[in-house]
Nucleic acid binder design. Structure first.
Lengths: 122, 122
DNA sequence: ACCAACCGCTTGGCATATCAAGCGTCGCAC
DNA sequence: GTGCGACGCTTGATATGCCAAGCGGTTGGT
């Protein structure tokens, strides 16, 4: 029943930080992309502030994640029971240019990525 | 070229006001439902303020409107143009559940598979 | 050894979001 | 008419978002 771990701000911040690091961006680089100051980004990532919609959107754009996803991470939009979006899996499975073994391998990698990201929102 | 009509705040406010009136709710009633003060709701509806994500969501809930819709109205989320290109590359590239780095990695693996197969067909 | 360039972070201050309290108006019962 | 309740709105005051400037640490070149 920890009350600090599920603080929406902390969750959102952690998610943003992870995404930024995966994109190999420094705070200043992201700052340049988003027109948001780097100190403020730092504070947001550490959960000290709840950014405005405008800031959230520009962060989402810069990191190539959908704004919806960010709002979800922020705990501000309910999970809307999205089981999975099967488009990528379907595309891989029906790709004639791959062998069956390659399809399995690609799907495996893809699923591990998605699962890792989901787990990220602790 | 009127610059006041497409002010996102004014658009959003007008939309909220319309929805509220269609639900036959007074400002005070909506205030009670949303835990947001009625003066502030008044100002938001007249486009004097850009509400936070938390406020937007509670308004959306109270008015039975999807939060997405509100964000769209706020001009802060574009009207998602779907690519609908059925190729595997496109699916991976537009998969929001992957980070940019992961997308690059997956694409790289995918291309190496395809290239290997082409070479083998000779 | 130094310095230049980057990193993430702290701080003080201005701008904006949000609220509690109060104002004037309107309909309606008595 | 007059009181009463509900309406939308104005107005300070407080909290929060956001930024410019600057700090100490690290890395790498000379």
């Amino acid at each position: 029943m920890q009350t600090a771990d599920d603080d929406p701000r902390r969750v959102l911040g952690g998610f943003i930080r992870t995404q930024r690091q995966m994109a190999n961006l420094s705070l200043r680089q992201l700052s340049a992309l988003t027109e948001v100051s780097n100190p403020y980004l730092s504070q947001v990532e550490r959960g000290l502030h709840e950014p405005s919609v405008r800031v959230l959107k520009s962060i989402a754009d810069a990191l190539n994640v959908s704004a919806e996803t960010l709002f979800e991470r922020a705990g501000l939009v309910e999970a809307t029971g999205k089981p999975a979006d099967p488009t990528t899996e379907a595309a891989i499975r029906s790709d004639e240019r791959l062998t069956q073994a390659q399809r399995r391998a690609l799907l495996s990698v893809y699923r591990s990525y998605v699962e890792a990201n989901v787990r990220e929102e602790s």
